[in-house]
């Protein structure tokens, strides 16, 4: 028996919004410790990793490890049937070929129950090595989304250059060039407005706008985003999922000039 109840059901809806443009289907691995999803996008350029800790749920039970392969377009359609303040429960029997989504209104006066067929998907788990990153940039997630959107008008790539002075995002194309510099903030009223750079050595890398823009679909999950960069290794773009976990996107840099 698997059962996971989340009072802040809205978080699950936001997770689906954050992955459904990159992935059409994926497996949710359910274990005693929580739920994980790891999948490469449809064109095998980026990797998405979602981790939801068991303790983050209001009720969590997983008697046996369970792999639930899902059509994420269908899952997203079902989650769209819930209200933003609904409590969401996912439930499956051992060896079942369906999963149930139960939506309860906060007053418990409306309860909806949706069943979805599970799929058998080929598991393609990648081992992500532990990396000490040369630069870790923490910044407001809305600011990052805005910069990616704005710079996409100039070219298909964004150059991210991080030094101890700050971080510079640049793009160049037919209409001209664009540069956005963010300095590390000295003092902020709200922690979520801070730009904090943890730098061991300066790094400059080039990334595809198209993917960065898809990663920013996670913006509603968290007021802050972290960008971890290291020469010649994939960028990690990470958003917290409330108090219950995190979503990470991995994207290899572009090479050549």
């Amino acid at each position: 028996m698997f059962e996971a109840r989340l009072v802040h059901g809205n978080l699950l809806k936001k997770v689906l919004d954050a992955i459904k443009d990159l992935l059409t289907e994926a497996s949710w691995d359910c274990a005693d410790s929580g739920i994980q999803l790891q999948a490469m996008d449809n064109s095998h350029v980026s990797l998405v990793s979602v981790n939801l800790r068991a303790e983050g749920f209001d009720k969590y039970r997983c008697d046996r490890n369970l792999i639930m392969g899902m059509d994420l377009t269908s899952m997203s359609k079902i989650l769209k049937c819930s209200a933003s303040d609904d409590i969401i429960t996912m439930k499956a029997q051992d060896n079942a070929d369906t999963v149930s989504f139960i939506f309860e209104s906060p007053s418990q006066e409306k309860v909806s129950d949706y069943q979805m067929k599970l799929m058998n998907l080929d598991q393609d788990h990648l081992g992500i090595p532990e990396t000490e990153y040369a630069c870790v940039i923490k910044m407001p997630s809305g600011e990052f989304a805005r910069i990616c959107r704005d710079l996409s008008n100039f070219g298909e790539n964004i150059v991210i250059a991080c030094s101890k002075e700050g971080v510079k995002f640049s793009a160049a194309g037919d209409i001209g060039t664009a540069n956005v510099k963010l300095a590390q903030t000295s003092s902020v009223d709200k922690e979520e407005d801070a730009v904090v750079i943890d730098m061991q050595e300066p790094v400059t890398l080039t990334f595809a706008c198209r993917y960065l823009n898809m990663f920013t679909k996670a913006t509603p999950l968290s007021p802050q985003v972290s960008l971890s960069m290291h020469p010649d290794v994939p960028l990690v773009v990470e958003y917290a999922i409330g108090e219950i976990g995190q979503i990470q996107y991995f994207l290899a840099p572009k090479i050549g000039d």
Binding site: L47, G127, I128, L251, A252
Partner: peptide, 12 residues
């Protein structure tokens, strides 16, 4: 010319 590097070599 910028070429997209595949991810898989980094992770296997």
């Amino acid at each position: 010319l910028h070429l997209q590097q595949p991810l898989i070599p980094f992770f296997r």
